[in-house]
Amino acid sequence: MTILELHSVHRMHGSGETAVHALRGVTLSVDAGELVAVMGPSGSGKSTLLNLAGGLDSPTEGEVVIDGTVLGKCSRRGLAALRRRRVGYVFQDLNLLASLTAAENVALPLELDGVGVRKARQAAMVALSEVDLEGFGPRFPDEMSGGQQQRVAIARALIGQRRLVLADEPTGALDSQTGEAVLRLLRSKVDAGAAGVLVTHEARHAAWADRVVFLRDGVIVDTSGPLDQPDELLTAPGSVQ
């Protein structure tokens, strides 16, 4: 089932001679259970693509569809509700509200959506245990490591009915082992049925995805998917020197 669709999406910033064409006719779809990585140099349009996919920005041309809803046809209120209920975000930093505990951070989207505090907190505790943070509910962000904070962010991104997680360099500030643990978690959440888009400039991180798209100057120039038989890599002639 397709969760996210971008149809011939363009995004122009400014106008006239100073106009910047951030995205030029990008078409992309992401199914449930699929993780798509977006790679490209600075200024290639990666973050613009992610903002459009999450309804944080609107295309100049083209259409963005989440779970069958065309974002361009939503009212502001409808769009806000859709973002709250359907889309989760994980960013490199500024993920958690420092004045709220881990449980309160995770429960926040549900509470904003009118779910009772008690029920929302219960759901948050379950979500935290699913990311191996059982017992961390009462801790504040500054009492947790960077990797633990990203786990909280992933728990929050996928709490409730939300099945689309958008991650922008989620391992940026973490060491390689901790970063890998975050990617394993993201991968397992996607394998359990979510759809994910991961923006990264590191090929080793993008490799956790099912598909990798390369952006350059606002255009998808290349897409790579995995081979069918990974074990063949290890036995092919000259595969490993």
């Binding site: 956790w208 995995p226 081979l227 890599l233």
Partner: peptide, 17 residues
């Protein structure tokens, strides 16, 4: 080449997982 190397990287990552 980049597409092929990226696929290889993806498969190594599957094996690692």
């Amino acid at each position: 080449q980049r597409g092929a190397t990226m696929r290889t990287l993806q498969e190594y990552t599957r094996l690692k997982a």
